[in-house]
Design a protein around this nucleic acid. Structure first.
Length: 366
DNA sequence: ATTATTTGACCTCG
DNA sequence: CGAGGTCAAATAAT
């Protein structure tokens, strides 16, 4: 009945909002921060308006839907990309223009990942996409099947593509929400550009095996292929009693985060209470996921001297705390915009501490 | 003073 | 042996 139609229009609204947002993203990407604040502001307003309207509509006929309020801040909603089961009609169907966006957007990658990978939830993961048009070192050789992966290869890896800011010169590596320390770079046979190796900055604090490799595609100078390996164990803190054991395997939890793909940071609303290392928001256009499953730790084979940090690398300690925090993207935007007044302190509990204890101090472990 | 990046040497796997 | 990955010393940035 018209309920469906209404839903449809609401969805269209949302898509429009996404479109606008996408345009904004492009602008930022192209012009860097040479943009005038007014323009940015205007764009933000437009976008916010659209989403606010959409949200209102959703709220209006959301009565008989689970009304389990948010009892748990850690149970996120993400109804956005995960609407009711039906509506299959326009489920995957979206505006052509939007699809185009999705083609390059993070969202698509996210979706892809959700479909192909089956990660667990948490934040900072990756996505997988492997179209690679270039040289075919691709793995998918039909002829030979790898029956079993080497135990070692099991290490969960996930590839993602992210667009590099196309602005003039500064092409910094993609930024996800984690902090990485570069520990190497190598020329790769057959690849035009070198591959950079990163490991989690907090690795020192007792192992956080997360690593990632970044390399730009031969084709696209402006596209990075990021391969994430291992999972972060450096979760921070605190008040996240919610999920003792994330039962999450629901599907995929999406985490909207910010981390503009492009460096220019909008000087948004961050009040100040936010942690220093993790920006509370910036761009909700990007989202991240993470894969899961642990991995046997494994030392390294280090060079010469010591190396073997291994020590007690047992395998898994308990389930880490993982706390999948997902902020409802919509909420974030709305809050910043208008309507429901709200403080957006949903932000992560991460405190402002520095991960590394400076100087002598002791270290706080995860 | 720190920590981060650069970069050649070193290590491992195939 | 070579490709890919990591270490660690030197260097740069903070």
């Amino acid at each position: 009945m018209d309920q469906q139609q209404q839903q449809h229009t609401t969805l269209s609204l949302i898509l429009d909002g996404c479109k606008l947002a996408k345009e904004l993203e492009e602008c930022i990407g192209n012009l860097g921060n040479q943009l005038q604040p007014e323009i940015l502001s205007k764009s933000c307003d437009d976008i916010i308006n659209i989403f606010v309207t959409a949200k209102q509509r959703l709220n209006n006929n959301a009565h008989h839907h689970h009304h389990h309020h948010h009892q748990d801040p850690s149970l996120f909603t993400h109804h956005l990309l995960h609407p009711p089961q039906d509506s299959s009609a326009h489920h995957m169907q979206t505006d052509p223009s939007l699809q185009e966006w999705l083609k390059y957007g993070v969202i698509t990658q996210a979706v892809d990942m959700i479909q192909s990978c089956r990660p667990s939830i948490s934040m900072g993961g990756e996505i997988q996409a492997m179209d690679v048009s270039d040289s075919g070192k691709a793995a998918s050789s039909s002829s030979s099947q790898r029956s079993h992966r080497s135990r070692k290869d099991d290490e969960e890896k996930c590839k993602t593509r992210v667009a590099a800011p196309q602005m003039g010169n500064t092409d910094l590596p993609p930024d996800d929400n984690y902090t990485w320390r570069k520990y190497g770079q190598k020329e790769i046979l057959g690849s035009k550009y070198p591959r950079a190796y990163y490991r989690c900055t907090h690795q020192k604090m007792y192992n956080c095996p997360a690593k990632k490799q970044v390399q730009r595609l031969d084709n696209d100078f402006y596209t990075f292929e990021v391969t994430y390996i291992g999972q972060h164990t450096c979760t921070m803190s605190s008040t996240a009693p919610s999920i003792p054991q994330p039962p999450p395997l629901l599907h995929d939890q999406m985490v909207m985060t910010q981390a503009m793909v492009s460096q220019p940071a909008l000087p948004p609303i961050s009040s100040s209470t936010t942690s220093s290392s993790i920006a509370p928001f910036g761009s909700w256009l990007s989202m991240e996921f993470s894969l899961g499953s642990g991995s046997g730790g494994r030392g390294s084979g280090g060079a010469g001297s010591s190396s073997g940090g291994g020590s007690a690398t047992g395998s898994r300690y308990g389930r880490d705390v993982e706390y999948p925090a997902v902020a409802d993207m919509a909420d974030v935007m709305f809050n910043s915009g208008s309507s429901s007044s709200n403080s957006m302190d949903f932000i992560f509990p991460c405190a402002e501490d520095k991960w590394e204890a400076p100087g002598s101090g002791d270290k706080k472990h995860c």
